[in-house]
Computed example of a mutant assay.
Amino acid sequence: MVIESEPTVQNEAEIFGAVLKSARLKAGLTVEALAERVGVTDRYIYRLENNGKTPGYAVLCRLIRELAISPDLLFYPEKPSQDSEVDTLIRKLATCDERAIKVARATIQSLIDTAP
């Protein structure tokens, strides 16, 4: 999304809502499921996505991490995004515990070993 002038607070909130909704849908989550995962109400998520509400820092961090949103999409919306699946995967891996990383590593190695 290209913005011609300095974004206003309203535009920033609209950008945030659009990015949040897009990331939630891409993750295959309902509003209710996302709300439960980040510890807020579903009504709060609806207000973030549709009514120009912006979250506080703690909720913003949980949303970014849960949905593996590139912070550049939120803080530099005028910058062309070239976010790849690999970038998204790397952000998700950064939130994993040691056991999950071992499982991911073994899964990736298995995929590489069985590739045609």
Rank of each mutant, 00 (worst) to 15 (best):
N51H: 15
V38C: 08
K79C: 05
N50Q: 13
R47E: 13
S70V: 01
Q82V: 12
S70N: 14
Y76G: 05
R43S: 14
E85D: 15
R62F: 01
A33I: 08
D72H: 04
I64T: 06
S81E: 07
D72M: 05
D72R: 03
R43T: 15
T54M: 14
V86W: 05
Y76D: 14
G52R: 01
V38M: 02
D42M: 11
Y44M: 13
E49F: 09
Y57M: 09
L63M: 09
P77V: 09
C61H: 06
I69E: 00
E78I: 07
V40R: 06
P55K: 04
L63S: 00
P80D: 13
E85V: 14
L74R: 03
R65L: 01
L60R: 05
G52Y: 01
Y76H: 12
I69R: 00
D42N: 12
Y76C: 09
P77M: 05
E36V: 04
D42K: 10
G52V: 07
I69K: 00
L74N: 04
R37A: 14
V40A: 09
R47N: 12
E85Y: 04
A33L: 10
K79I: 11
I45Q: 11
L74E: 03
I69C: 01
N50R: 11
K79H: 07
L73V: 06
E36G: 12
R47M: 13
N50F: 03
N51C: 12
G56S: 07
V59Y: 02
L60S: 10
R65C: 06
E78T: 15
A33M: 13
F75I: 07
L74Q: 04
L73K: 10
Q82M: 10
N51M: 13
A58C: 05
E85N: 10
F75R: 04
G52E: 01
L74K: 07
P71V: 08
R62T: 09
P77D: 03
R47F: 06
A68R: 01
P80E: 11
G52I: 06
G56M: 09
Y76K: 13
S84Y: 02
E66T: 12
D42E: 15
V86A: 13
D72C: 04
S81A: 13
Y46R: 14
Y44C: 05
V59C: 09
V59D: 05
E66S: 07
E36C: 01
S81R: 02
Y57V: 14
N51T: 09
